[in-house]
Amino acid sequence: MVISFSIHSYRGGTGKSTTTANLAVMLTLYNKKVATVDLDLTSPGLHVIYQVSQSQMKATLNDYIYGKAALEDVVVDLTNQLSLPRGKLYFLGASMKPEEIAKLMREGYSERFFREVAKQLGEVYGVDYVIFDTHPGLNEDTLLAVLSSDVSFMLMRMDKQDITGTYVTAQVLSKFNKTSYVILNMVPPDMANAPELQAEVSKLLGVPVIGVIPFYPEILQHRSRGVFILRHPKHPYTLRIKAVVDFIVNNIK
C-alpha cells in the first residue's frame, strides 16, 4: 500500500525541499521505494537539490496534470544517478516555464490528482511512499494538497510569524481530522538542546513534534551540491533526519 505525505510550511524558506530530499533518500536507505513530487509550483526547487537537468525530464508534472503526458514520461529514476545502495528514488518535476506556472496557479489542480498519482506510482513503480513537496502558505490549493495526502508534515521555524501561522494551520487541519506531525527545522542550537522544547510546541499546536533539527549553516551552503546526507552520513543533521525516518517507518503504516 502506498502512503502519501505532504511536506508543508506556513512560510517559505523553512527548508521544505531540503527536508523532502533528505527524508526521501534516508527512506531509500531503509530499502524503501520513494517518489518525490515537486508541488512547489511557483518556485520549484527539488530538481536543484537532486541535480536533475531539464533535459532529463521528458515531460513535467504540469503536462501530466493536464493529461498531455503519461506518468512514465514525467518520472525520473534517480537511484543510479545518486548511487543509492538500496531502495528506489523517483522524482516528478514541475515546469519552470512562467506561462505554465501561471496557468496552474490560476486554474488550480484537482483533488483527484493526488489520489491518482499516488495510485499510479504504486501500480507502475511499486512505491511505498509518495512525498508531495508543497507550496508554502495557507491557500486553498495547498490545503487541498495537504488534505489529499494520507499524512501531513508541517515544517516550522522557531520565529513568531511561523509559530503563529503553523498554529492556525494546525487548527484548520484539526477541523478535517487530518493526521499531522510537526518537524521543527533550523532551530537555534541553544533552543534545540532544551529538553522541554518538543513537549511545549506539541502542547501549543496540539500536534506531535517528531523531529527537532538545529540550524546548520553547512546545509544551506550545500543546497545546490546534492543531497546532504549522502555526502555527510555521520553529520548530526543526518542523525536527526534518521530519527524522523525511524518514526515514519515504525509508526506510520
Binding site: Y64, I65, Y66, G67, A69, A70, L71, E72, D73, S110, E111, R112, F113, E116, V117, Q120, E123, V124, E140, L143, L144, L147, V172, K175, F176
Partner: peptide
C-alpha cells in the same frame, strides 16, 4: 502508459467549500 484525466467532481467542490469555510 498511465495518464491522468483532468476534471473535477462534486466531492471536490464540497472539499474546496469546506476549506474556504475553515
Amino acid at each position: 502508459k498511465h495518464y491522468f484525466k483532468p476534471g473535477r467532481d462534486e466531492s471536490e467542490a464540497n472539499l474546496r467549500a469546506k476549506i474556504s469555510q475553515a
